[in-house]
């Protein structure tokens, strides 16, 4: 079993984390604390946050997460797909329990 088994699959509703870790991270501010849906998995890679600190980092899933512009900026009719490590994501319990 890999160190980091995949926690999410395409179609899963997710919420991005709100916390802003010290140092380098690859979750853009505009996509923090936002609700989106996994569209596909973009391979398995060491976490950029850990590599930037010179730490060893096991590969874990990275996902393409689709957000409605309205859920990011309160307006707009477009979509934004951001590529996010699983560490930045939590299940969106509210929507997945429906």
């Amino acid at each position: 079993m890999p160190d980091h088994p995949d926690r999410f699959a395409p179609g899963d509703p997710v919420r991005t984390r709100i916390t802003d870790p010290p140092g380098h991270t690859r979750l853009p501010r505009y996509a923090r604390g936002a609700r989106g849906v996994i569209v596909s998995t973009a391979g398995h890679h060491p976490l950029a946050d850990e590599r930037a600190r010179g730490l060893p980092s096991a590969p874990r899933a990275v996902h393409h997460v689709r957000f409605a512009a309205r859920d990011l900026f309160g307006e707009g009719d477009h979509a934004v797909v951001v590529e996010l490590w699983e560490d930045y994501l939590e299940p969106d319990e509210e929507r997945s329990s429906r």
């Binding site: 690859r26 979750l27 853009p28 996509a31 973009a42 391979g43 890679h45 950029a48 990275v62 393409h64 689709r66 009719d77 477009h78 979509a79 934004v80 797909v81 951001v82 590529e83 996010l84 490590w85």
Partner: peptide
Amino acid sequence: TRITVWDASAES
């Protein structure tokens, strides 16, 4: 036309 923006935030 719907617009989708791709933010290259990881390894793709």
